[in-house]
Design a protein around this nucleic acid. Structure first.
Length: 196
DNA sequence: AGCACGATTAACT
DNA sequence: GTTAATCGTGCTC
């Protein structure tokens, strides 16, 4: 039996946490069933100076969770229809988080198949909004503690991925974000998803 | 009170 | 490659 990753895992430099999250296991309890997937893509968003980060304009009602203690879920709504899941990082008071962009579904594949009826398995959870749809993650989980089972969403230790299987690059979808933030190598992606 | 836009996705041409 | 979908948020008037 594997325990949720402790708060100390998240109370570190956000870029390190983003890299470390690859190969960890995202777990969601849904209707008594356990869904899980290995994290295969993550991006770091770090501080008010990072002009790509939601905290760039200071604290607001929307981004308040990022200023709170590490190990919480920051879930936000965008494009009028999509939810995104982040893990809050670093010391309380410093706004930072890691966006989970993709997982490879392991446990609960039947449930995910039903929640993503029009998608092929390789596209069930290969985007940040897709994984939220697959795991039923929305506003209700904003602020949830990922360090325990109470909120039905947590992250456990997993096999990880060696550096040879990880590509590092610029974050995506940042629109007109100025340099150097646009090109910061804060996106971590597994080159090849693990095969079943 | 009004408005432009977004850490995207799916369905087009 | 292009674009509609769809609405909360934060900024301007």
């Amino acid at each position: 039996m594997t325990a949720p990753l402790p708060e100390s895992f998240y109370r570190r430099n956000t870029v390190e946490v983003a890299r470390s999250l690859l190969g960890m296991r995202l777990v969601r309890m849904l209707g008594g069933l356990r869904l899980s997937g290995l994290i295969t893509e993550a991006e770091a968003y770090r501080g008010e100076e990072d002009l790509a980060c939601h905290a760039r304009a200071g604290r607001t009602p929307r981004n308040a969770v990022m200023y709170g203690p590490p190990g919480r879920a920051y879930v936000y709504f965008t494009y009028g229809m999509h939810w995104m899941l982040n893990c809050v990082t670093e010391e309380e008071g410093f706004p930072a988080a890691v966006l989970l962009r993709a997982v490879w579904v392991d446990e609960g594949r039947e449930v995910v198949a039903a929640r993503r009826p029009k998608a092929l398995p390789e596209h069930w959870t290969d985007g940040p909004a897709k994984l939220c749809q697959a795991f039923q993650i929305d506003r209700r989980l904003n602020g949830a503690a990922l360090t325990g089972p109470l909120d039905g969403l947590w992250i456990e230790a997993g096999p990880g991925f060696p550096d040879e299987q990880v590509s590092i690059g610029a974050r995506v979808g940042l629109g007109g974000t100025p340099e150097p933030w646009l090109s910061m190598p804060w996106r971590f992606k597994v080159k090849r998803p693990p095969l079943s």
